[in-house]
């Protein structure tokens, strides 16, 4: 089991992590905005996360922390 956590207010909604995730469990949360006015990334199914860090490595703004 692995876990991703996000520093929401640093996210710029660029979507690179969503594109990088091999499990397709990341998406930009259309239901909320961060203080920059972007839809921040969120994980739709933490169970499926394998902690591969693809998302965190692809993120230009160091939003994501990964535990495994």
């Amino acid at each position: 089991m692995a876990k991703v956590t996000f520093r929401d207010d640093l996210c710029k909604g660029c979507g690179l992590c969503v594109n990088a995730c091999p499990k397709g469990i990341l998406e930009l949360d259309k239901s909320r905005l961060n203080n920059k006015g972007y839809h921040p990334v969120s994980c739709t199914d933490q169970e499926k996360c394998i902690g591969c860090t693809f998302c965190a490595v692809q993120c230009p703004d160091s939003v994501i922390t990964v535990e495994r």
């Binding site: 660029c14 490595v57 922390t65 990964v66 495994r68």
Partner: peptide, 27 residues
Amino acid sequence: MAVVFEPTKGLTDKPFHYCPGCHHGII
């Protein structure tokens, strides 16, 4: 669980001003 990836101490905690998706941040 152990942290396998976290923000680096090599960067200050000032958020980047770069545009969304710009690769400067990764570099």
